[in-house]
Nucleic acid binder design. Sequence first.
DNA 1: CGATTTTGACCTGCGC
DNA 2: GCGCAGGTCAAAATCG
Length: 571
Amino acid sequence: MNMEAVFRKSIHGAGGVKPDHHEETGFVEDINDLKVGKESKSVHEDDNSKSSQQKDLASDKEDDQQLESAKADMEEVMEENQRLKKHLDRIMKDYRNLQTQFHEVVQRDAEKSNTNIIRCDEADQLVSLSLGRTSSDTKKEELSKILMSKKENTKEEDNLTLGLDCKFQSSANTPTTKSSPSNLSPESSLGEVKDEKGAETWPPHKVLKKNIRNEEDDVVQQNPTKRAKVSVRVRCDTPTMNDGCQWRKYGQKIAKGNPCPRSYYRCTVAPSCPVRKQVQRCIEDMSILITTYEGTHNHPLPLSATSMAFTTSAAASMLLSGSSSSGSATDTTRSTNTNALSYHLSDINSKPKPFYLPNSSISSTPHSQYPTITLDLTSSSSASSLPGHHQRITSSNYPTPRYNNSSTNILNFSSAFESNPLLPMSWSNGIQDVSSLSFATRSGEILSQSNNYLQNIISNPKPTQSLLPQDTISAATKAITSDPKFQSALAVALTSIIGSRGGNHHHIDEKSGQNLKVTEPFPVLCSFPSTSNNPIKCSSNNMQPEKLLQFAASKSKSTSPGDHKEYYTVL
DNA sequence: CGATTTTGACCTGCGC
DNA sequence: GCGCAGGTCAAAATCG
């Protein structure tokens, strides 16, 4: 074989070759040349020396031995090669079998689902993403009914459900879009999304005081850059916004510059949950509540908590993915002009209202070495209320995206909540649920691509998405989903959700008290702002997030053949 | 009576 | 080192 020839050439180069091998002419000729050379040399130096001839004979014997051993080694290598080949073939066969089964499962599950989605498909894959849910309490059920009825009326036009749905489809297998409900664990996270050991985000000084120094803390100290706070601004008359989680107040302080006390809460869903939040009224507008989440839940979340958790988690993930490559850590005010987030909100009375909020605030205060992302769910009335290092893009019901040159971005949620009292928004004014919240992230380039489109939307704030040109939307969505940061954030979020399922097989709805198995259906409806009748196709150069989604979808279906009417939120 | 909130003390980091 | 500010602890008070 070739290998053998190469091997022979190599040993030939070393000079140790027996001239009696005639398998290859050229090889033999070389050997003869060598031998002649040796003989010629010996003639010139010592023609009558028998001892020299004996040495030559001994040398030839050594060469023979080396050749034999080399051949033996070569045979071993070849045998090993054959074994590896067989092994590889076996692996490939297994892989193909699994792939076939996988596609079958996906296809079968997809046929069962009838939820509307957005198609993200340019590489024979469909990915739909939305953040939304309906909830289980009475109010939520009513809202859900409304949502469902509207969905029936508008078919694919709405984005009213809030959940994270992942829908895949290989276009080669199934020509139409079908959903794959993901039974994602609600054990999601606030703030950073990553595996539990790496998820804790508390500053070292907090850890040091406590004797509880586990691996998680070690990871934190080893990876200080991977910490994020997600600040959510909402209009809320209640002391705290209802985000679905159970919190216990453990402190209150008057922060400098704001007469309103800052309250400190920790999650009490699980005794060891590290997630904490700070709640403070905005000094500029007392009706605005600023809630800052920090940390990652290490337990299953109540249904009502998952939407907020997923939202902040996704935001934090994108923040972290962007901030990791951002400016110097020594900057007291560090900003990352990275991800622009588009949040799509819709109420139940009207068609989905796209909120394109191109700027996300990623910054850190002089006293906070960790980046903070601000999700602004308020109206423009409090535009000046953000701290100086935050540059906030104001918004009315249809916030105008501004692509300013500032290095600081604001992730600005919309204010549809206050203008739409029927909007089920748990984060605002005691309204219990979020009807629809879709998001996407775009890079700066993507912003430039879709800028005209977005501006057009804003300048003509008609919420009817069907008026939007589909190809433009497709282009925008394509750009969005092709953003590697979005993909990575999505992958991280899903990974955290899926990966954490193992140890937590149920979670508790804090209101209804019902125990829900995580393996129950988790139909996640993913949708970007889209024209209702025209699912958006979007491409992805990196297929990993889609693969992940696909896996999640199939996984959830395989384990949850039950009721798909109830949408669970993830965060 | 258990859970939650209140509140003053304490700890830590940072800037001067 | 000192003072300030943010954050946390934990005992007491309050609530359901």
